[in-house]
């Protein structure tokens, strides 16, 4: 049986359908990413899978436990790090950790080895209150607290949101090591560039899964011809390209512009001529492979019709 199995899960709040009939499976030992913006349904999905919300329809099992019927058993086997900082601000690092261990009927000493890799980095500050920690340290403490009862599976809801690029890298490094130790990890993020760190990803928007596969297969199935263009004054370049008759989409992508053609193949020569006629000199045009972000945007468009 898969580590997570969801069948037509649905949750509605008033007239908003936060999660709409989602069915998917997550395998044991997988690092699985739910990728999508705010409002995609990531948190609602996580709350249902961790038994904190009862679905309106459908069902799910986590490690073989039904999320509604077997919720007591399930809660002992999962580790959950909610999106909002969930630690006790007035307790110190060591007090928070001891508290989480005690509610699961264990001790920090007994399971120290489980968290050692992560906890050692903040242990020198263990007398400091959680409320006074930096973002990166809070993350490490919250992850330690979610691990202290030796769960079989971890649910991490947007652990890197609002965190700077350096701390984000370090966090993903910690997840990679946990995965190597055999942990099943389900993580959500709004950052498309983190998709590549996952074994498989679900691209989510407005309660739906737009695509679910390995990052390579997702980007590999991108069907449109895609060109990377570079030159001075990106904004003017974008506006000019929108007037080219065969343009499907034009978007800024870091220092370059990604152009997709509405036909089955693009014509870089004709584009170069067109751009020269608009006064652009020295534009480099190069066919490239789509990134997860390109794929997400294309799927968004298809989905919104």
């Amino acid at each position: 049986m898969s580590a997570v199995q969801a069948e037509a899960l649905r949750k509605t709040f008033g007239n908003v359908t936060a999660v709409e009939d989602l069915s998917f499976a997550i395998e044991h030992g997988e690092l699985f990413g739910c990728i999508g913006p705010d409002g995609a349904g990531k948190t609602t999905l996580f709350r249902m899978l961790t038994s904190l919300l009862v679905p309106d329809a459908g069902s799910a099992t986590v490690m073989g436990c039904d999320t509604v019927r077997d919720y007591k058993q399930l809660r002992r086997r999962i580790g959950y790090m909610p999106g909002r900082f969930s630690l006790y601000q007035d307790l110190t690092i060591e007090e928070n950790l001891a508290f989480f261990a005690s509610i699961f009927g264990t001790t920090v000493e007994k399971n120290y080895e489980m968290i050692a890799d992560i906890y050692r980095q903040i242990e020198p500050f263990k007398k400091r209150r959680a409320g006074q920690l930096s973002g990166g340290m809070k993350q490490k403490l919250a992850l330690s607290c979610a691990l202290i009862h030796k769960p079989d599976i971890l649910f991490l809801d947007e652990p890197t949101t609002g965190v700077d690029a350096v701390s984000r890298r370090e966090f993903w490094e910690m997840l990679r090591r946990l995965k190597e130790g055999g942990m099943t990890i389900v993580v959500s993020t709004p950052y498309m560039d983190e998709a590549g760190k996952c074994d498989r990803i679900a691209l989510m928007q407005k309660g739906h899964i737009l695509g679910i596969d390995t990052p390579d297969n997702i980007t590999g199935s991108y069907a449109r011809p895609l060109l990377d263009m570079r030159g001075a004054d990106v904004y003017r370049l974008i506006l000019a390209l929108r007037e080219f008759p065969h343009t499907h989409s034009v978007f800024a992508f870091g220092e370059s512009v990604h152009y997709t053609d509405s036909r089955s193949s693009a014509d870089p020569e004709a584009l170069a001529v067109f751009l020269r006629s608009r006064g652009f000199a020295n534009i480099t045009i190069e066919p490239i492979r789509a990134s997860v972000e390109d794929s997400f945007m294309e799927l968004l468009e298809q989905h919104d019709g």
């Binding site: 913006p37 609002g162 690029a165 709004p190 904004y235 978007f251 997400f296 968004l300």
Partner: peptide, 30 residues
């Protein structure tokens, strides 16, 4: 933060437009 990639780019086009009209943009981002 938290905005989908299409909207993020539409937002940046508003920024470019404002800057082109002379407004100074002072921005933080992750």
């Amino acid at each position: 933060g938290g905005v989908d990639p299409l909207t993020r780019r539409q937002f940046w086009e508003l920024i470019y437009e404002a800057a082109a009209s002379g407004v100074t943009i002072f921005i933080t981002t992750h």
